[in-house]
Design a protein around this nucleic acid. Structure first.
Lengths: 135, 135
DNA sequence: TATTAATGATACTATAATAGTATTATTAAT
DNA sequence: ATTAATAATACTATTATAGTATCATTAATA
């Protein structure tokens, strides 16, 4: 079972590349693609989504590209996971897509809830900046 | 994003039902279906898999059904997740299905590895028995 | 102002995973 | 022999994932 999806993975690689190579400057998708061996059209859509979600800023036209909308120290893995995979919530009740009559007192749910909180906290602590320094 | 899949969820409900209502005895799929509102054919396949993996024992023929292969105190959520979703490993490298050249020194990987260990440990502690008592 | 080098938007396709159904065979108690 | 259970296998429908293709828009600059 995977935890982070391919989209999240690709996005993270792109962000790490940007932080490492351009800092506050503008980077084109082609530059990322060349270094990171990611599929161009696909990565394009990914960074577009990051821009829409306020993590990157897009600059159209010649000399355009993408730059950070907020500092790499403030972008954590949880932000990226939220963009591509939704909330980290391990407690979804899966009974035929409906909520089971037992939700309120479901012991499993409570356990999973506590685990998701722990994971959430851990993910929050992983920022682009911290990984850049730590590697 | 979900963490446990529908299969795992259904399996867990079935096991809880069995522990609650039959203990060491034999339970038929129909009995579980009636109480838990799960799709019959589907649940059938699920408990069959549990039997193959050594969590339940199947008894064919009249008066047949399924019983526990090991005590409900020794069946933990991690066992069931492993049956239906594979290992809890948050560290899969997703670069085009290949391993990226950076695996060894990948800082993200190390972080995710530590998170999976934590989760793994938590899941190990959740047993059928403990939830039965705790609810 | 025409050219060029970038992103933006949208629609499409292929593959795999998930969820569920249907059918027929086998087994063991009575 | 009958009956009430599981076993095995194959099928289908839906959704998610992964990736591709095309054309529009924008802004620098020669």
């Amino acid at each position: 079972m995977n935890f982070i999806s391919r989209d999240t993975d690709y996005a993270w690689r792109a962000l790490m590349f940007m932080a490492k190579n351009a800092g506050e400057g503008v980077v084109t998708v082609d530059e990322i693609v060349q270094e990171e061996y990611l599929p161009e059209r696909f990565l394009r859509r990914i960074v577009q989504k990051l821009a829409k979600k306020g993590i990157l800023v897009s600059h159209k036209g010649k000399k355009g590209g993408f730059s950070f909308a907020k500092s790499p120290g403030k972008i954590s893995l949880i932000d990226i996971i939220k963009v591509f995979q939704g909330n980290v919530d391990f407690t979804n009740c899966l009974l035929k897509g409906k909520v089971c009559p037992n939700v309120k007192k479901c012991a499993l749910r409570r356990k999973l809830q506590s685990i998701s909180k722990t994971v959430d906290k851990e993910l929050r602590g992983i920022t682009i900046m911290s990984l850049l320094k730590g590697s």
